[in-house]
Amino acid sequence: MVEFIRIMWVGINEAMRLNPRAFEIVESRPDTAWVVLAVAILGGASLLLGQSVILFVNRVRPARFVVSLLLNGVIFALSLMVWGAAIWLTSRVLYPNEIPLTKALRLTGMGAAPYVFGFLVLLPYAGNFIGKVLAVWSFLVVLAAMTTLANGNFGPALVCTVVGWLVVMVMSATIGRPVIYVRNALWRRLTGADMDASVQDILGQFAAPPEDAATKSRRGAP
């Protein structure tokens, strides 16, 4: 277990440095798939902790809060796998190769490494910016992983990573909708709250519409 955590930590650390060795280290172990899965789930859970304002706004109870974090970790891992599959498919079509799908999935999973620090999104005011930095960082990790997979050929790796991401976006807006529906239903069932509402939606009922104040000002009310 200690060795497993150590390998996880080394993988995260090296992946965040965009070091190709990170992917060799992770790939060198027989339980590599579990290491990557653990990193992805941890990243997803940490990111939701950083974005937990939505759970609080929807008044999720403490026990379900923990369940939500784990669920988000699993969903996050799955979404990375979908991205990995899309990248693999793109590479097969544009640059015919013999790279196994499982290897592409494992390396894409390491893209979750920066999100292990997703809890930092919690920081007041600076958190949003940190979230954006982590998103770019994650993309760069996946790009570095794909470059390693393409034997150092940056161009094809960039094309496959970007096109793969676009494929996922198009799919989620079209044929992926039923999957998203099932995901949301599962989410509602486990967390006991409808997560569609934002802070502004829920608290807007207490706030004044700006035109009220503007009208008052025009009337010259003291």
């Binding site: 937990s52 304002v53 759970l55 609080f56 706004v57 008044r59 999720v60 109870r61 403490p62 809890f119 930092l120 919690l122 920081l123 007041p124 207490f206």
Partner: peptide, 27 residues
């Protein structure tokens, strides 16, 4: 950093009713 990370929890927990009493809100 830990202090900054924990800073939002007081108000968030208050809103979610985690600390016992339900929030009294202006109407």
């Amino acid at each position: 950093i830990l202090g900054a990370l924990l800073a939002p929890f007081e108000s968030l927990g208050w809103w979610a009713g985690w600390f016992g009493e339900k929030p009294a809100l202006p109407s």
